[in-house]
Design a protein around this nucleic acid. Structure first.
Length: 478
RNA sequence: UCCCCAAUAGCUCAGUUGGUUAGAGCGACGGACUGUUAAUCCGUAGGUCGUAGGUUCAAGUCCUACUUGGGGAGCCA
């Protein structure tokens, strides 16, 4: 008999139908005459209730069916006598693939903390919460490719190993085959990377953007979607050493086109999740609601589902950096001296400032543009005031900056001048400069942190809980 | 990297001004139950109190260091 996925059985199963399902036991309960097994196969957050009449099975056999055990069940689909589900499977034959010793199996049918499950990352997929999170994560990855494909963007794979260390986006992981304990040295007493695998010092990429620009200035619109590595010693709920980033880059887009794309893109993703992951989102909403019950009223946030619809239906606020500074300066918060960091034109906005703008002042996502040139990267287009650049940051409630982007400086001389000012070696980036020497065009792009998106979509509060195997300082197990 | 907090049963936690035999809930196990929904009821087992040192007649409790985890900050996506 052909195996059916539980998702299909619950959606389209016919009463009276003989079926075969396979999956893992979530819980088992029962009485003298009958046992109920909640079976899950990962195809949906919902379980299929398997009914095993005691008289049809040996007692010892049923004892081995514990939480976590894997089964194949054949039987007849019947209308449920219970109220929690419409159909259930009357088992005629059960095969146990693998037992799960209840004394040793860590995932028991009870509430576990996320911290505990993080330490059991290899088994946490078997919980409702994490299976939901990773189904949503998959749906988002698929939707991203879908969106860009529909828009005529090309998926471009930029290198993970790079010789460029001038991107200035953070500390990098060195890639080398030189022996760690006794590397070859130059006469000056430095490590001789000319003898290294690539004939020079190489690192893991911190961004595919510069290479992305090379693609965009020929293919028109491209996007990258791949892993990114930062060797920063960051210990927060929003940072990983290895994370995934989406970086679209578009020829002939100015800053406004860039903002329009970013907003449309994010809204498409939210709509996709609502259309395709509703069971998981409802489960996650309920889970979050339970968790929030323990918090004082003031700290509780909006329901996950409400929040998604709210962002979907509302237009993002667009506001210049200069206007934002004025708002912050005139805020009660500032006048009462409640900001930890001072607000002055020219300083980088702190988390507390961003949170005030998004959560208190506007109450919706905000796109901040035209930042002072000194706090942004060298490749951003200089505005006519010569003080600000055409940067844009999309700020979301709770998670802060979800997207950072800009219109790029397309003028060769201006770009070179800026690089010289900040000390970025233009010479070794001759390949990047060539885009401005030959057929340069106005172009723009942005970076979206994939895990931050998944955090927002699932309501998970810690970025380590939305990537299967998190890499953070002092943690690379699993 | 900086600041704060925590580490006690498989899990989540309580443990009084330092004082006899370290507790509860959940989970597990055994039993009861005519179909349960994280079932219910009764019972049983389960502990080198994170590690190393110190103070003391006496340390789960006080002190120091380290380790790990959590929260916040910085860096950023």
């Amino acid at each position: 008999m052909e195996r059916k996925k539980i998702k299909e059985v619950l959606k389209a199963g016919q009463v009276g139908e003989k079926i075969l399902v396979k999956g893992w036991v979530r819980t088992k309960r029962g009485s003298k005459n009958v046992q109920f097994i909640a079976l899950n196969d990962g195809s949906t957050i919902l379980n299929l209730q398997v009914v095993a009449e005691i008289e049809n099975f040996k007692e010892d056999f049923l004892k081995d069916i514990n939480s976590g055990a894997s089964l194949a069940v054949t039987g007849e689909l019947v209308k449920s006598k219970g109220t929690e589900q419409s159909v259930e499977l009357n088992a005629t034959e059960i095969t146990i693939y693998g037992k799960a010793d209840p004394d040793k199996y860590p995932i028991q049918p009870k509430r576990h903390t996320l911290e505990f499950l993080r330490e059991n990352a290899h088994l946490r997929f078997r919980t409702g919460t994490f299976s939901a999170v990773f189904r949503v994560r998959h749906a988002m990855a698929f939707a991203i490719h879908n969106y860009f494909n529909f828009k005529g963007f090309y998926y471009l794979n930029t290198p993970l190993i790079t010789a460029s260390d001038a991107e200035g986006a953070g500390q990098m992981f060195r890639v080398t085959t030189l022996p760690a304990n006794n590397p070859p040295m130059t006469e000056e007493g430095k490590v001789d990377f000319s003898q290294d695998f690539f004939g020079g010092s190489t690192n893991l990429t911190v961004s595919g953007q510069l290479e992305g620009e090379l693609g965009a200035t020929a293919l028109g619109e491209i996007y990258t979607f791949g892993p990114t590595f930062r060797a920063e010693n960051s210990n927060t709920t929003r940072h990983l050493s290895e994370f995934w980033m989406i970086e679209p880059e578009m020829a002939f887009y100015n800053l406004k086109d860039n903002m329009d794309l970013a907003e449309d893109f994010l809204k498409y993703l939210i709509k996709y999740a609502l259309d395709n992951c509703i069971d998981d989102l409802e489960f996650l909403t309920k889970r979050l609601h339970q968790e929030e019950k323990n918090k004082p009223q003031a700290e509780r946030s909006m329901d996950l589902m409400e929040k998604l619809k709210f962002v979907l239906n509302d237009k993002f606020v667009r506001c210049t950096y200069t206007e934002a500074i004025d708002i912050l300066k005139n805020s009660k918060q500032n006048k009462k001296g409640k900001f930890h960091y001072p607000v002055e034109w020219g300083v980088d906005l702190q988390s507390e400032h961003e949170r005030y703008l998004v959560e208190k002042h506007f109450g919706k996502p905000v796109i901040l543009i035209d930042y002072p040139k000194d706090i942004k990267a060298f490749y951003m287009k200089m505005n006519s005031d010569n003080k600000t650049v055409a940067a844009m940051d999309v700020l979301f409630p709770q998670i802060g900056e979800i997207i950072g982007g800009s219109e790029r400086e397309a003028d060769y001389d201006k770009l070179l001048k800026r690089m010289t000012e900040i000390g970025v070696p233009a010479k070794s980036m001759w390949w990047y400069m060539d885009t401005r020497r030959f057929g340069s065009v106005p172009h723009s792009g942005f970076g979206l942190g994939f895990e931050r998106l998944v955090m927002f979509m699932t309501g998970m509060g810690n970025i380590r809980d939305v990537i299967p195997f998190p890499r953070t300082p002092k943690n690379a197990e699993f």
